[in-house]
Write a protein that binds this DNA or RNA. Sequence first.
DNA 1: CATGAATGAGCGTTCATTCAT
DNA 2: TATGAATGAACGCTCATTCAT
Lengths: 187, 187, 187, 187
Amino acid sequence: MRCRDDEKQQNIKRAVIKLILAEGFHGLSISKIAKEAGVSPATVYVYYENKEAMLYDIYRECGEQIYAYVLGRIDCTSGGERFVESMVQAYYTYIVEYGEEFYFVEQFTSCPALVGKCSGLEGNARIIRLFDELKRKRIIKDLNNQIIAAILFNPVKSIAVKYRQNPDARTVLAELIPVIQEALLAD
Amino acid sequence: MRCRDDEKQQNIKRAVIKLILAEGFHGLSISKIAKEAGVSPATVYVYYENKEAMLYDIYRECGEQIYAYVLGRIDCTSGGERFVESMVQAYYTYIVEYGEEFYFVEQFTSCPALVGKCSGLEGNARIIRLFDELKRKRIIKDLNNQIIAAILFNPVKSIAVKYRQNPDARTVLAELIPVIQEALLAD
Amino acid sequence: MRCRDDEKQQNIKRAVIKLILAEGFHGLSISKIAKEAGVSPATVYVYYENKEAMLYDIYRECGEQIYAYVLGRIDCTSGGERFVESMVQAYYTYIVEYGEEFYFVEQFTSCPALVGKCSGLEGNARIIRLFDELKRKRIIKDLNNQIIAAILFNPVKSIAVKYRQNPDARTVLAELIPVIQEALLAD
Amino acid sequence: MRCRDDEKQQNIKRAVIKLILAEGFHGLSISKIAKEAGVSPATVYVYYENKEAMLYDIYRECGEQIYAYVLGRIDCTSGGERFVESMVQAYYTYIVEYGEEFYFVEQFTSCPALVGKCSGLEGNARIIRLFDELKRKRIIKDLNNQIIAAILFNPVKSIAVKYRQNPDARTVLAELIPVIQEALLAD
DNA sequence: CATGAATGAGCGTTCATTCAT
DNA sequence: TATGAATGAACGCTCATTCAT
């Protein structure tokens, strides 16, 4: 018998991510996905149980990828300032390099109807543990984790979005880093 | 074609906002809207040219409403600390009181396919002018406006979303305010 | 506004009945029905909630029609022999004249998956009451109603089916009537 | 292509018969059959040329089985009354014991679109020959064979269906037997 | 202005069947 | 022989929109 082709599933995943950026969750359809992925609509159902499960699955993959990317590039051993800087840089680089995945996760996350049916990401728990550790070591202030995450990620995100493919972005980022450092790091 | 101040149009608008929260932009349909609003599908087209125009229109209304709400509750005359505090409080209160409108705007905004076809909101320009003025008065640091906005709004937003209807929210908010003040206010 | 067109619903009904005879319940599809009825597939859903409900509805109409037809042509006032004769003739004539409706009901009835979700026909209760009355009057034997109905209807049915459009049918029917009379009538 | 006496083919056959009872001919699909039979969809095509041929084949097997079962249990040597009684008992027992097969044949038979493409069953010819012989021996009346078959089989069938798993069935059957005897047996 | 009817196009999904192993 | 992958076609149904009143 023919064997499950991992490349086909990758094509489908890529098609979904690409189309979501171009047309949003509304405007996404199985037949568009199939056409973009170069397979038959029925083939999609070989790899995913249904559309909803497919989106959850891809969301999970992309969501975890973000955390893995950032966590893999953080420098936690050279003090708080370096920690913030490396985190911001990593997150910004991720958004620039993986824009499509990023926007997929963004749209999915900001839709309560979608994210509400989905359990939290594993990567998020890892970040929280990291924050707790850094607080214990008195590297960052003893703040609510939600606040830390919000200050650390959201401004970078909004700059990355606004300055998409604008060379000034790095300058703005350089301006942002000390602000975050001042806000989060213990004296 | 328009007939503002009509109760029917308000019903339609409310229906859209409610359904978007419950089911997302995907899953929204004219017939669902009509049913929820208690009108005929054809009636929707009396008030809006088509579905897309309807969404843009409602987005614009809701988006401007946020800025109007917050700008109307900011205290700009009692120093930077009070400015930050009043802004955070106003934004948080808005999200709690107008959750449906907030999520509608959030989802719309995070969808490039939608927001890309829409010009910026007027309220955003007013906020930018306010920032510029506060920078000129040396009340807030001379930072990129995108950074200021991101630091001011995004953490509040993520707390409001996470702590939805949780009484601890106000405590967390109180913790957040000094962090933002430290980050943004000129010494 | 445009008004619901009763003729359209009749066309749909006729299309269903015709197609069921030609192709069976399997092989029946909304698009075939729509084509045969000269309407759009979507129009079918103006008149029926869904395919299943449509079939139940048409089944009920056709089923009751059979009972109404036969009950309207029975001669109950001229003794048992005339009763049996008139019943047999009426039922046979119905099958010949309304073959499509008859086969629709037959197929529906013999499918447990379909008929099991459907409550009994009103006409059946009327027939049972008639049997009870005839038994009380000692016109027919005091037999289980199921037996009476089976002897009265099933042989006619199987002859009508086998001799479809064959002129010998009437001869065979004439042969059948006394057999049924002997079987059911009180001495 | 065939490989009779194979357990896989029996599983497929059983799956078809079971599913037809549960869901009707509409609602039957190769993949459901395969799942129920514990084989791959492709395997079905090893044993049957296509879906239609499979149904015809199984119908033929089940149809002949009924005749074989009943003919094997008839007592033709102890007079007409015993003949009718044994026939009724045999047929009833078959329906109770092989309900799934019975309903399969019933549904198939009552669908002109299916049965019309299928030649008559061999068992039917044997029954007809038996009737002719009994008529020649003046055991049963000289009636049209269709009538005999209808009176002999259909009432039993309708009682078996109505009284499915109801202990009263045997009582009703006992009531039916003399009626049939009176109707069919020569004086 | 307001409507329920009407629709062609498209939806997500499953179909019967074939392919490659 | 037996399989899971693969598919174009079709499924039942809903869509955004227009029509006739």
